[in-house]
Design a binder for these strands. Structure first.
Lengths: 289, 289
DNA sequence: GTAATAGTGTCTTTGAGACACTATCAA
DNA sequence: TTGATAGTGTCTCAAAGACACTATTAC
């Protein structure tokens, strides 16, 4: 480029003399809603373990929101994308590298952090419970998994998070035109993290229906019933078996293996179907860039 | 709260002594993809005007990317959300206040702006062409509307933008698992704005199908055929009339009025149906917070 | 009449919802 | 045998796709 600007500078000269000035800049945090699916062991040897959706939270050891629970997160650093910052935190907290990570939304309300001007670029991570290794190198000694449940009742959404040591609860009101929500009650969650978690649950549920994100939450080999239980745990409602199987049959690939020693009829083991060269793959596009 | 932290401070004391430190912080820009629908006037008095999707771009008067076209945008300021920053720019560029504005995604690749560490929180705005008033108080003398067309061919997406004075073009390659795209060719678009525009077009197309966003792009009163032409212009394909009408009939409300003097059968005028108190409104939730 | 759009009817196909039924294992 | 899951068949209903047909205006 040899184009000159109004001062007669070419691009190289311009960049050399460029001064970013001293306008105020916010800190940018990458917060992550880390989801996993966990088994609920029953006492009946014949029953399959139930599944539940869990989110990882960290107990705050200092002000503000001391003693309350927050999403894992950290500040973005020069030379990395905000997604890389999120991944760094994900690895620190869970030991999982290469897990699924997706940017959700950037929360920037003034005052959302009482300490300083900090905006949060929220992310969602999905990891298979088999590879979880919480506390791997984490400085957050108080990281815990919380079971996620929501209830929808008359313009309000109730979010319940149940952990080993604590039960958290938030209520959100749907606002004008359902395009906005506002937290009206909040017990135990730090910052605006209740809002972020609700946003993430919403996104996860929506994408479950039109992408193949489920496979980020289950082991490589699974039965169709296990897969259905994962759907049900996330969506919070039961599905019809026949309809469910019709729907996902073209996303999975059967193997020759079966379960055994379960006290009931063995189930065929499936794996995720790999993309064919010439085939149509409508459900793989996640819409993210 | 009278809880004390490890230093024996309560929250108020902590916040008073809190020092945000001097860690590097990025500038945060709010860039906006402003869409509108415009008429394509024909020469046949009987023919309805065609519709086309347009995006507003600004010609850069200085380095970097001097002479190329960029999205309108500006920096986020303390005390406002990034959405408010976007709205400020939207009003400056178009004179439209209260238009539809939605946050898309935060682009943060290092080096995306050669001047400095600047991340971009991209937004999408939809305005009715009737209220457009480009240059209203704008300092960007070179703002122009570009017709948006995309073509999908074998793992690549072609984006074409046609304006009065310029034709821009970019090619994007779908990457691993379609979860990522990469711009492989770019003629005339500044920064990573080709990527942002593609992201916005994608989002708009997807939301058109399951929300009532169309009504942000059309005048208050419209015919069903005009509405269908808007859908077709955005989606880039023709729709079946009968099926289209079945689909949107429960989103619109007919009036007593008809078009006239058109050289063909008059069409009934419709308005957007307002939400009923007790009714179900499945298509109003946009999934945004 | 003619060229255009307005508006509707209907047949087919697809897929979800709902339910019932058979199959098969381990204790 | 029993209690559980595995797996399939099928009827219904709703919605989309595809096409054809009639209606109505300004010139």
């Amino acid at each position: 480029m040899s184009l000159l600007d109004a001062s007669g500078l070419n691009e190289e000269q311009f960049l050399q003399q460029y001064n970013p000035g001293d306008f105020p800049r916010p800190s940018v945090a990458a917060d992550i809603v880390i989801f996993t699916i966990a088994d609920v062991e029953g006492d009946n040897f014949r029953k399959l373990p139930g599944k539940e959706l869990r989110v990882l939270l960290v107990r705050r050891g200092g002000h503000p929101y001391i003693g309350q629970w927050a999403l894992p997160g950290g500040f973005m650093r020069p030379g990395e994308t905000v997604g890389e910052a999120a991944n760094r935190e994900l690895v620190e907290e869970t030991g999982v590298n290469g897990g699924y990570l997706e940017q959700l939304y950037t929360f920037s309300a003034p005052g959302r952090d009482p300490r300083a001007w900090i905006i949060s670029c929220a992310h969602m991570a999905l990891i298979d419970s088999g590879q979880i290794n919480v506390h791997a190198g984490s400085d957050a000694a108080d990281a815990q998994w919380f079971v996620v449940k929501t209830e929808n009742a008359g313009g309000y959404i109730e979010l319940s998070l149940s952990g080993k040591d604590a039960s958290l609860h938030a209520t959100a009101a749907l606002q004008n035109g359902d395009t906005d929500i506002q937290i009206t009650k909040n017990v135990g969650l730090a910052f605006d993290h209740a809002k972020i978690i609700l946003y993430a649950v919403n996104r996860l549920r929506a994408k479950l229906e039109y992408t193949d994100l489920v496979f980020r939450l289950v082991p490589e080999r699974f039965t169709l019933t296990a897969l259905q239980l994962v759907f049900e745990a996330i969506l919070g409602r039961t599905l019809y078996k026949a309809a469910f199987r019709r729907k996902i049959v073209d996303l999975v690939q059967e193997t020759e293996c079966y379960t055994s020693d379960k006290g009931h009829r063995p189930a065929k083991i499936y794996v995720k179907k790999m993309k064919e060269e010439g085939g149509q793959n409508e459900r793989t596009n996640t819409g993210e860039f």
